[in-house]
Amino acid sequence: MDWLVSQISSLSKIFFYLIQTVHWTILISVLAYLIALALGLTFGILRLSPRRPVRWFASVYVNVLRGVPLLVLIFFFYFGLGKVVNMDRFVAGVLAVGICYGAYLAEIFRSGIQAIDYGQHEAAMSLGMTRWQTLRHIILPQSVRIVVPPAANEFISCLKDSSLVSIIGLRELTRAGREYSSQYFLDFQTWLMVGLIYLMLTFTLTRVVKWLERRVAVHGYGVEKR
């Protein structure tokens, strides 16, 4: 009984210690993901440009960033670029994660755009719409419905991968876990709790995604309204 009480009290102590840094994890992943969304949408569209140099430029971005480990990217931004342009660890970490996920999202957006029947382009063009108007009013609103599940998946990955920035000393959830476990030698309990907090975050997110999928549903088209 005493053992159980002491375990619970130490676990709750760990929980309250860790939870004070969880807003950094959320902030880093949200900011990184917003950057990734902007980059992903831009480069996803550019990859389908009728101009060859533009397509080429976009595919270089995607292939280079997708092909380098995120951890290496974080080191490069903080230790490499950080020395040249004077970035603090927060900016370097967010940029590294954002730019990396931008490449993944670019591929998702590209496939979302390509998944739309070409007849939709033709119908829009026959009504006199320009390429941009067609994209904005016809193609993207339909792509969104296709893109929401995989893009939301990427956000969950992004949230988990934000733990990597702990290595450059950003005090988010994982970093706090390392500090606590090395101070009190409660490795098992600490990492169990770190894992549980990540799980809480990602589980909440999956619920939000489900709700989002239903919100963008249109009757008789893609995901059904319930």
């Binding site: 033709e122 829009a124 026959s126 009504l127 609103p141 419905r145």
Partner: peptide, 27 residues
């Protein structure tokens, strides 16, 4: 030039994400 020429397709190509009124309104 295209907007002066109306076209009706074999497979309709209506915009599935818009209701009937918005389909006709949009352009």
């Amino acid at each position: 030039i295209r907007l002066e020429i109306g076209m009706v397709f074999q497979h309709f190509n209506l915009f599935p994400h818009l209701n009937v009124l918005r389909n006709v309104n949009l352009a």
